[in-house]
């Protein structure tokens, strides 16, 4: 997942000390208005629950553990102010684990391991309601808005997740014990979107009128079809918890 260049350009323009945009938006410790929108860029770690039977099989047959499906994650959201303590956020994330493995129990006829790579990719896109547990700031007059220093929040939302569970490499045909090279991919037949729900909690620490640090924890729940490449399995468990730290920019 790539961060839009325009967003980076805006963030850099704002972040440059003495930047004209920053000077146009904020005074000495205050914004000139309550923020209309807040951008947040975050990074952290996303664990995968890996609770469905496909993971059970994979981890039992290959040299993989369930924690191997966790990975670093990046995310971004844009929050629109609804009330002084409620935001509507549009949120996107990206996490991808990719691990090499071999059959725990099989080697080939040359005593070499039978190797493959398993990739688990999740891209959640959600709409959330974020409720701040304290006022996000204080308006003084109509031209000054002073952010609160520390603002905890909770929230939740729904959305869709684009996901991909893919194994590529050498595999054992348990019917024939032949070792064959193949790819198993949930996206082979386009079934790669699933409905998800998530809850979140965190805290914003505002160190300037425009900028803050966000500590965020969230749990996402969802299950998706595996497609024809994985026959007979239950839906794949897309759930997982994540923790991240981010930089927020208020405009």
């Amino acid at each position: 997942m790539t961060v839009p260049r325009s967003f980076i350009a805006v963030a850099l323009a704002i972040a440059i000390p003495g930047g004209t945009l920053s000077a146009q938006l904020a005074g000495n410790g205050y914004l000139f208005h309550a923020p209309y929108v807040t951008f947040d860029l975050r990074g952290g770690y996303s664990a995968a629950s890996a609770g469905s039977d496909v993971f059970d099989d994979v981890t039992s047959q290959l040299t993989l553990n369930k924690r191997d499906f966790g990975s670093l994650t990046v995310g971004a959201d844009v929050a629109f102010r609804v009330t002084s303590q409620v935001d509507l956020t549009l949120d996107a994330g990206y996490s991808r684990s990719s691990h090499q493995s071999e059959f725990r129990n099989f080697v080939d006829n040359n005593n070499l391991p039978i190797e493959q790579t398993t990739t688990f990719e999740r891209i959640p896109l959600t709409a959330n309601v974020k409720v701040h547990l304290a006022p996000t700031g204080r308006s003084i007059g109509r031209l000054a808005w002073i952010p609160s220093r520390v603002v905890p929040y909770v929230g939740g939302g729904v959305g869709m997740m684009s996901y991909r569970f893919r194994q590529q490499g050498d595999f054992v045909d348990f019917n024939t014990n032949d070792v064959f090279n193949s790819t198993f991919d949930t996206q082979d037949d386009g079934r790669d979107w699933a409905f998800i729900q998530q809850v979140m909690a965190g805290v914003d620490y505002n160190f300037s009128p425009m900028f803050g640090v966000t500590l965020d924890a969230r749990y996402l729940h969802g299950r998706g079809d595996l497609g024809t490449a994985f026959s007979g399995y239950d839906k794949i468990d897309l759930s997982g918890a994540s923790a991240s730290v981010g930089i927020s920019v208020r405009l």
Binding site: G141, R142, I146, P209
Partner: peptide, 23 residues
């Protein structure tokens, strides 16, 4: 004026129309 001063003014009852001019 900085944020601290604005808060002091607001707490002292200075109307927003006045602090707007200061801002």
């Amino acid at each position: 004026v900085d944020a601290k001063t604005l808060v002091q003014l607001a707490q002292a009852g200075v109307p927003g129309g006045v602090t707007d001019v200061l801002v």
